[in-house]
Design a protein around this nucleic acid. Structure first.
Lengths: 259, 259
DNA sequence: CGCATAATTGATTCAGCTCAAACCGAGTGG
DNA sequence: CCACTCGGTTTGAGCTGAATCAATTATGCG
């Protein structure tokens, strides 16, 4: 890594590819839960004030301390929210399709506390901030939907805190894999979609520890061959995860699909 | 602790004193940032649909998995959000005067992921949920204010995650004490307002470790004599805290006063 | 005062980190 | 087709921060 670009956060065209503008599938976008219950005229207006960007794997959408100037929604791909400090990095949340990306930063102009980085090829929709605020003036439904999504992200983050101090590394890993499987339930064989080092950061451990813990969870009914996750004994794996901070918790009801 | 009451979450009158109904200082309440920019007629309507409860130190406001049936605001005192599992407990956030208490639980009827417990004598204001929803229909200002407060709580929780995996126990302790001092800036000598074991849980360490770490931070310009916090060398203490997840970050701009 | 709860101290253990080396698979170029 | 690199992953050895367990000592508090 280039010392200068790391320290100054400047853009090195080679290390930091610019996103490309893309066209979006409007019908799919319209189905995003953030529009639930919103009148179609407002929805259309927001859609017409939106643009799509595609980021390549590894590129940053925003750096910590930076601001987003529109409401960002993950349309495809996985986005890692993490604090990056030189070599060391510390993941917070993995946003997935349909999740809002740092809504507070766009709505309140707050500098982001974390960096957001695409881990896979990622399509992001950006809604014009002024247009979103205007829509919130007209209808409380949008504000309510955003509020709901933020509630869900808060819950996910609280889970993360609890996991970090109540569970072992192996338990966090197993629990993560199980949730991953559930979120991919409709798409055939479950796959680990990201590099292991990013998974390690997300789970608050080093890559070396992750590697060792994979062996431990394998002894408890949860294999990983290549990128394919194989559940040998779901009940055992669930038992191994230890006390779930809040059982039966699934944040999808709050329009959150993050990991 | 009584086995039955712990497992079933039933109310043992001795261990779990009921809160008492109290009258509130309406003028002070009106100054709560959640009402910022809200018309006085709506504000008055909400105030007239509110009630006050006073909890004694140690009593629970809600247990994990439970629901709150109105928008709760901390009016006086400190409320610990924590996951309690038998003996072991794990703190997440310490709410302070003016903070919203688990707003998502009231607004969306979601079961709470954590327990909320008064650590000092605490006064809570409860606004009728239906009335709050009605107010949100009429004016987007209230929704916006709630959104802002939730953003701030999310940021605090993210900080917590980062602290847990980027800082040592001693650094977390020092950083917490410094923030505590700043929040008490206007009230004379800074005081540790809660029992050390609760502080330990909030910081993700055991009471024994906290005790030892207090000696370490004392060697870095931050003493604690009795409950009084004495800053001997602020610059040194700040340097000792290590990398701040996001420097200059103060969530008070987002109407959050939590610790 | 006397009891219960909280805080400290000490000794020991252990989960996970660090550092270093080996390994592996995918490109790349001869 | 093979050698070579190069990033990512795995494995191993040792270290360390913090937990645990156990024993005191302080601090309320009725």
């Amino acid at each position: 890594m280039n010392e200068v670009s790391r320290l100054e956060g400047t853009i090195d065209p080679a290390a930091e590819p610019r996103p490309t503008t893309i066209k979006l599938d409007l019908d799919e976008l319209r189905a995003n839960p953030v529009f639930d219950g919103l009148g179609s005229s407002i929805t259309n207006r927001l859609l017409s004030a939106s643009r799509g960007l595609q980021y390549r794997a590894g590129s940053f959408i925003v750096h910590q301390g930076g601001r987003l100037n529109g409401l960002h929604v993950v349309h495809r791909g996985l986005v890692d929210l993490a604090h990056v400090d030189g070599e060391h990095e510390c993941g917070v949340l993995l946003l997935s399709t349909k999740d809002l990306l740092l809504p507070a930063s766009a709505l309140f102009g707050e500098p982001s506390i974390v960096s957001a980085r695409a881990l896979t090829t990622t399509k992001v929709v950006i809604f014009d901030a002024a247009e979103v605020r205007a829509a919130m003036e007209v209808s409380r439904v949008l504000a309510n939907n955003v509020l709901k999504a933020m509630s869900g992200q808060w819950r996910m983050t609280v889970r993360n805190v609890l996991d970090l101090s109540c569970r072992t590394a192996a338990q966090r890993l197993a629990a993560f894999l199980l949730r991953l499987i559930d979120l991919q339930a409709d798409s055939g064989a479950p796959i680990l979609p990201i590099a292991k080092r990013h998974l390690a950061a997300r789970l608050g451990m080093t890559a070396e520890t992750l590697s060792r813990m994979l062996q431990v969870v394998a002894d408890n009914g949860l294999y990983l061959r290549g990128r394919t996750i194989i559940v040998n004994d779901r009940a055992r794996a669930e038992a191994f995860c230890g006390p779930d901070p809040y059982p039966g918790g699934d944040e999808r009801g709050l329009n959150v699909f993050a990991l």
